Simulated scan of single mutants.
Amino acid sequence: MNFGAAIKKIRTDKNFTQKALSDGILTRSHLSQIETNNYFPSYDKFFLILDRLNIVFEEFLFVQNDHKMLFNQQIRSQISEAANLDDTEKLKNLAVTAKNLYEKTDNITYYHYMLICKALISYSTSHTVSDEMIKFVTPIKDYLFSMDNWYLYELRLFNNIIYALTVEEALLFSRTSLKRLSNFQYFLEFQHIEQHIYSNLSTLCLEHKDFQTAKNFAETAIEKAKKYTLVYEKVCSELNHAIACIKLSEDRNSYEIIRKNMLILEYLEFESLYDHFSNFLRKFEINVDF
């Protein structure tokens, strides 16, 4: 669907007349020319039109693309799904797809997706950060270091590679990311990205046996999960916090928290996540009767 046809479809779907949509933005005749692709508005007028139609730019692109997600958004979603399910075969296929697309388009996004897939495959093999995993994320780390400012894409990348950074690198990046992230607090992705940064930092610190810092990050992650009603994320953050507390000899009711949340993961059939925390518990010699 072309640009003008997309504008017209959204307008008519929402029962706007040309006069009601154009009023105060541009003339009705100009809107009519836009809808027939004989005139293209300036950026400011285009976004005023979208605002009056109560849609965001991504939604407009979705309509213009005949209700299909742009492929780079599709592949990002598929990688996330495969990672959550620990589906190594799907990650391998996605890595090949991303590699082929990068070679065809020279779009660095696909190159990053390929590296993330390979890093996730490496991690799923042993559930530990290996030299191979670090090798795959190093180009992404270099890319992030080269940026003067980060946008949502860079913030998502940072979240994807936290596990393969040193604590010092992660803390350095996190200061940049959290400062930059505040600029996007009214975007829908803000809540998830912010909470995941703190949760992933707590996991990284556990990996490096920095239990006090892991506990501090987990406390913030739990607070953010409660604030934004992120149930899945709250479970993970509470497990991180409980593990850190036990290793700091501040167990209180930490064993019960672990038991409760592991049962939740088992009930919800989050097998890869259940295995991840089971490995963590074995690694830190924490025995809990489920």
Rank of each mutant, 00 (worst) to 15 (best):
S237L: 06
V63C: 10
F184N: 02
V235H: 01
S29F: 12
R76L: 12
F3G: 10
I7M: 09
I108F: 08
N183V: 05
F284T: 03
N183E: 15
A244P: 10
A214K: 08
E89T: 07
V96Y: 05
N261A: 04
N2C: 05
D275N: 15
S77Q: 15
L268A: 14
K215N: 13
E269A: 08
L61H: 11
Y274E: 15
Y110V: 06
N54G: 06
L188W: 02
H192S: 10
I246G: 13
S199N: 13
F16V: 04
F211H: 02
L26R: 02
N37A: 08
N84K: 08
Q74M: 07
D210V: 07
K247L: 12
T213M: 14
E233D: 01
N261Y: 09
R282H: 14
T213H: 05
S29K: 12
Y39W: 07
I243R: 05
V235C: 05
T109P: 06
D23K: 11
Y123E: 08
D13E: 15
L248H: 08
K141C: 01
E238Q: 14
E271H: 07
D87Q: 04
S199M: 12
T138D: 06
Y123G: 01
N160Y: 04
F190W: 03
D275P: 05
L152M: 11
I75A: 01
N84G: 00
F71A: 09
E189N: 08
Q64M: 14
L91Y: 02
L155P: 01
N93T: 06
F211K: 02
V96F: 07
L152Y: 03
A244V: 02
D289W: 10
A20K: 15
Y151D: 11
F40D: 02
S254W: 03
D106Q: 02
L206H: 00
L165T: 11
Q195F: 10
H208M: 09
K260H: 13
W150N: 10
N72H: 15
F211Y: 13
N160V: 06
F60R: 04
H276G: 03
L70T: 12
I49L: 14
S130L: 06
T97W: 08
G4R: 12
S177W: 05
E223N: 08
D66I: 00
F184D: 04
I197V: 09
K68M: 08
V96S: 15
E81W: 01
M147T: 15
C205Y: 09
E35P: 07
K104H: 06
R11S: 00
H192M: 00
K226S: 07
A218L: 12
F217S: 01
Y228F: 14
I162L: 07
N107V: 09
L206C: 05
N54H: 15
L31H: 01
L268S: 01
L181T: 03
I258W: 02
I25Q: 05
M114K: 15
I246C: 11
Y153T: 09
S182K: 11
D131L: 04
E59L: 09
A218G: 14
R28S: 05
L178N: 11
E223Q: 06
N54R: 00
L188P: 04
E132D: 13
T12V: 08
I7E: 06
H127I: 12
Q64V: 04
K247H: 00
S254Q: 07
I108V: 12
